[in-house]
Amino acid sequence: MTEYGPHLYLPIYCFMKNFLRYILPVLLLSLLLSCVKDTDFDQLQEVVLSPNIEVNLLFFEINSNEFIDPATGIARPVLSDVTDIPFLDDSDTQEGIIKADFLYEFENTTSIDYQATISFKRGASSVMYALDILVPAGSIGNPQTHVVIDEIDVPEIYQITQANKIAVSIDPMGQLPTDGSLKMRSKATFYFEIDGQ
């Protein structure tokens, strides 16, 4: 026992007794009474995020000479191409997207019209949604700009979000052009609604 011994323990004993008898109950009571009031965390489930996302989509430029197969010299009746788009059929995207606006902007400096078809496909052959666009003829001196906005709401949006490929086919209407080009630019606006549940 050190020289501090006896008078060390008595005050601790007194303190602990008073602590247990008076201070602790008051502390606990005040914690219970105070703490966090007037809040409702369940509300968080009702929070709805609604971001609108703008993204670039496809673009291309087809020069008039590309309608001829360079190897054979024979005209290609339809030009078509396809790309994967693995983001639409993602389950989060499927649940979150409520609407999508697609904007296709063509600039035609060739002398003929085109039938353009944009197809949203699932796999190689299932077409979930397709849009036909007639692109009017123009000239190098007078480029023809043609803009199509395709607004997709419920329920078509559910078709679109099943797709994992976009295919584009360009069908020249009439005599193949000798000069100029057909350009396309495109973008999409995806409207999300993501809730907290």
Binding site: F59, F60, D81, D84
Partner: peptide, 23 residues
């Protein structure tokens, strides 16, 4: 600069796949 996906419309012989644009 993220421009999106550029399509090339290549001449494909039968059985050939288009380029893996997205990859």
């Amino acid at each position: 600069l993220i421009e999106g996906i550029e399509l090339d419309f290549p001449v494909l012989s039968s059985g050939q796949s288009p380029p893996p644009y997205y990859a």
